[in-house]
Every structure is written in C-alpha cells, then in structure tokens.
Amino acid sequence: MIRIENLHKRFQKNRVLSGVNLNIRDKGIYAILGPNGSGKTTLIKSILGMVLPNMGEINVLGSNNKGDWTYREKIDYLPQIANFPSNLKVQELIHMIKDLRGASSNRDQELIELFAVESFLDKKIGNLSGGTKQKVNIILAFMFDSPILILDEPTTGLDPVSLIHLKELIQKEKAKGKTILITSHIMSFVEEVSDEIVFLLEGNIHFKGTISELKEKTKEENFEKAIAQILIRKDV
C-alpha cells in the first residue's frame, strides 16, 4: 500500500527525517507515535506530497509520488489544524471539497447526522468553535471512500460523545478494508484503536509492531509505560 525507502528531510539545519524505511503492506490501523518534533507530521506530509523529501522514495499503491498528484485521489486526509476560509458556510465548504475532488459522495449526510452539525450548516466557518471545526474537518476527511485514510491528531477538541463516534467510525472504515494511519498523543486512544504502532524518534523508526509485541519487548504491562521505556532506553 505505502512503501517508504530511505526518506531524508531537512528543514534548513534541522534534520527531521533521517533515512526512514517503512513498508505498510496490509490493511489495518497504524498509529504513528513519537515525541514532539520527532517527524510524525513531516512523514505524513511527505506521503501526501506536501513536503518534498531531500532524498528517498515514496510509493503509494504502487506508483511513485514524486511530481504526481493523481494518487491523492486514493487518500483521505485529516489535517492537524482545522482552519478553513472563514467567509464560507459549512455547507458550502462540504460542497466545494466534493466539487474539487470531482467525486460524488452521499456519505456527508450520514456523517453530518452522526456528529450533529445540522444546525451549523448555514453558519460561517469563522464563527464556529474549535470542536465544531474539528467535526467539520472529520466529515470532510471521511466523506470519500478512499482506500487510504490519514488522520493527524483526530481527537483534538472533541467532546466525549463525538470521540466515541469517531472511534466507531474508524473501526467501520477498518472493517471496509482500508489502511488507516493515525498520529495521536493520547495513548489510551492509540491503545484502543490501533493494530500496529510505528514509533518515530529523532527522525528514525525505533519500533514497528503490535502493542503486545511492544509490551513483551519492554517487559511493561502498561502501554504508556512501555512507550516511556523506548524513550528512556532508545535501543529497543
């Protein structure tokens, strides 16, 4: 599905990714973890072609992503910060993204009901609260049925009910046979939803495997402590 080979990225003097190799072959939910500044978002943005790597290759569904843009039809992306043109109404934004992608989708109605944003459809996006913006963000990302789904901090600003809906939604997408990449700092969320974790540290992958493998390796029962163990020992 996604194959990354020897990916290097430097922002001026700051080396963010240094030789990342990652091969995601199967369907399922992959959590990309790591401390702040470990290169999670850069990695995701490289997959999307928003960040251009200094070195290395990225293949998405068998085609190299360099200079190509059509492969993004196969990816749905939830960005970290939901900021949309403030003059647009929610309804118009949804309509616009549909129009831009040129794909027909009937799922938006279902999602609008699920996250209870009907009453905001005619409001301007600039007047929405952070949580509601994030809900709109989620609706936009889940609206299309693409085989790859990338979620960057999906839980930001969500209330508990919406969080439950989001988890259910993610499980549903997984059941459809999608590949889902998630970054999050909320460990309980990660433990609950993810099948496999990819741990980034200082621009390299330090661990890739299931949560139980991680616990075995670090000899910790608690997932959060296991993660802390990698950070402390750095040699797992």
Binding site: L48, G49, M50, W69, E73, I75, P79, F84, L100
Partner: peptide
C-alpha cells in the same frame, strides 16, 4: 490568511 486552507487543498488531488 488562507494558509491552512491551502494545506487542505494540497492534500486533495489537485495540481500544485
């Protein structure tokens, strides 16, 4: 002002 929105567009299948 439209920087975040540009980022959203960049993730869509549209030419830069």
């Amino acid at each position: 002002n439209s920087k975040e929105f540009t980022e959203l567009l960049l993730a869509q299948p549209i030419k830069r």
